[in-house]
Structure formats: structure tokens, C-alpha cells
Design a binder for these strands. Structure first.
Lengths: 157, 157
DNA sequence: AACCGGTGATTGATTGGTCAAGCAAATATC
DNA sequence: GATATTTGCTTGACCAATCAATCACCGGTT
């Protein structure tokens, strides 16, 4: 790439172009579609589902706000609000953290766990049908690695 | 009332699992990263950039709100608001549609075009660096087709 | 010509997220 | 051991998107 990067950069090739466009579309359509499938079924929006999901995967079904926010790809304040939403539905409870009195644990209630158990089949089905189905015959592991690289935000250099 | 087919669906395999997780991360991180690159550089958020972009690709740099909204993956009202934003910056102008007085055309101004020309190198660079770079060696066309399939929302069946 | 169902676009209310400021507890420094 | 700084979380203000309601205009019917 001999020329200075800002003057006349090389435009995207047609395949690159259509991949980028298609990704844009997927990023827009997919969450809504999955959301719609679930909401239609068990009334659990994707963000809240993800929070419950992550909580359920810990040994004692509890997690610090910090960590949960990171796993849900949410800002800390966004997480606070999500947890409040879940708390008012009785799906999650908050407990002060013992070893650090500033901290809070979001704790999955039995009701929350039950709700998650109800929801996950339809979530799973939606993910399969809306997404994975279209990647049969691909090397999923290789693909996953590429996405992991892309999803690891290196800051502007 | 557990439907046998829904009660114990097969969980995701490890590769599926990591692909889905990685996609989730990408969907969250990528637009923000690109946005940050562009805002930092030319002060044009992604949504507005996309609108200008699509306008610039038409023969006479104008488009009906309808169509533009679809191309930008935006609701019509979202589009209205985006165009208003752009209009107040002088990058776009609105003109009544001649053959249908209900309709409006968003028209790219010269200033808007200039701004777009300024911005697209950094947009392009961001897309390459944040995304395409990680897919070297992949069959991009095949990948694009898969994403197009996934991005075509079939309604809940 | 007056009407009426349908369509293009805008507007109002709400939602779900961000960032920045604030508060309380923990930790480091003197 | 008092004070300063940092950290964990919440709150306030804001923003960009959505949906539902509305307005304006089109076209066909009578």
C-alpha cells in the first residue's frame, strides 16, 4: 500500500462490499428477529435473557455487577438498569457483597431460573434457525476465531 | 404443557457456542468502534454517514425517505430524524417530490458530498481494519451469501 | 365533486442505552 | 490514623431509536 492512507484509499472489492453490507443487515435484523421470537413466546427481551443466562452459568447463580456487565457487553450503568428491570419482575435479587461492601451481587432467583428454563428452548431454536442454519458446511471454529478477533476492540492507533 | 419437541432441545456444540458468542460481541463492539474512529476523525456518526453514502450512490443524489430508510436499516421515523439532523448541518436538503406531493426527497447538498468525500477514507480504513482484516483467506463471497441469508428475516413460522 | 381506504412522512411518547457526576466504601500515603 | 485517591455502583441528563397516532395527499368509487 504505497500511497498515504488518506488520499486515495483503495475501494472495497465487490465481495468485500457485499460482505460488509450483509453484515450490516444481519446486525440490524438478527437481534430483533430473535427478540421477536422470544418475546412472542416467553416475553423476555434479549438483553435480559443474556443477563439471566450468564447468571445461571455461575456456580452459585450470582455475579458482581462489574463482571456481569462485561459478559453482557453492557456498560455498568446499562447493567444496573437491566438488573433493576429484572428485579422488579422478581427474576433477580440484589445482595450486598460480603467481602467488599461497595459491591453488589445480582442473584438469580428461583423464579428467574424457572423463567430462563422456560425461555431457553425458544431462544436456542431462534439462534439455530435465524443464524446457525445458514452456516452449515462452514468451518465454525475458524469462523468463530475470526469473529473473536474482530470483536476484540483494539483502540484507535 | 411441555411439547416433547420443545422440552429438551439439543444444546449448542462448542463451536456453535463460540461462534454465537463471538457474533454477539462483534455486533456490539464493531459499530461503536467504527463510530468512534469516524467521530474522532471527521465527526460523522455511522447512521448519518450511511445516509449520505446511500444518497451519493444515486444518479441525482436524491432519494425518497421510504427507500432511504430501507437502505439504512432504519424505521421511517428514524430516517426522518436522521435527515433532520443532517439538514441542520446543511449536508442534506429536503424537496417535495414532484410526482407525489406526499413524498419528500432527501437531497445531498454539495457540502454534504464534500463531507462524505472527506469521511469515507476513514470509514473505509475502519471497516478494513476492524473487520475485513480478520477474514483474510476466507471465501468472502460464500460468507457474504450466508450472511445475506441470515439477514433476510423470514417471519416467525 | 364529495367521499373513502390506503400510503408517505412527521410527531409524541416511550424505551434502552450512553456518558458524566455523585456517593459510599476501600485502599494507599503520609 | 487522618487524609487523599481509587473503585463499585447508582443516578441524572441526554440521545437515538422504536411504535402508535396523526396529518396530508393520492387514487378509485359513486
Amino acid at each position: 500500500m504505497p500511497n498515504p492512507s488518506e488520499s486515495t484509499p483503495q475501494p472495497l472489492g465487490p465481495d468485500e462490499e457485499s460482505l460488509v453490507r450483509a453484515l450490516g443487515q444481519v446486525m440490524h435484523v438478527l437481534p430483533r428477529a430473535i427478540d421477536a421470537d422470544m418475546v412472542g413466546d416467553r416475553q423476555l427481551p434479549l438483553t435480559e435473557y443474556t443477563a439471566l443466562m450468564n447468571l445461571s452459568e455461575t456456580p452459585d447463580r450470582r455475579m458482581r455487577m462489574n463482571e456481569l456487565a462485561a459478559l453482557c457487553h453492557l456498560s455498568l450503568s446499562g447493567m444496573t438498569r437491566t438488573i433493576i428491570r429484572l428485579e422488579t419482575q422478581g427474576l433477580v435479587r440484589r445482595e450486598r457483597c460480603e467481602e467488599d461492601a461497595r459491591g453488589w451481587n445480582a442473584v438469580l432467583t428461583d423464579e428467574g431460573f424457572a423463567r430462563l428454563e422456560e425461555s431457553w428452548p425458544s431462544h436456542l431454536a431462534a439462534v439455530r434457525r435465524r443464524f446457525l442454519q445458514h452456516f452449515e458446511g462452514f468451518d465454525l471454529a475458524q469462523l468463530a476465531r475470526a469473529f473473536e478477533r474482530a470483536g476484540t476492540a483494539e483502540s484507535t492507533d
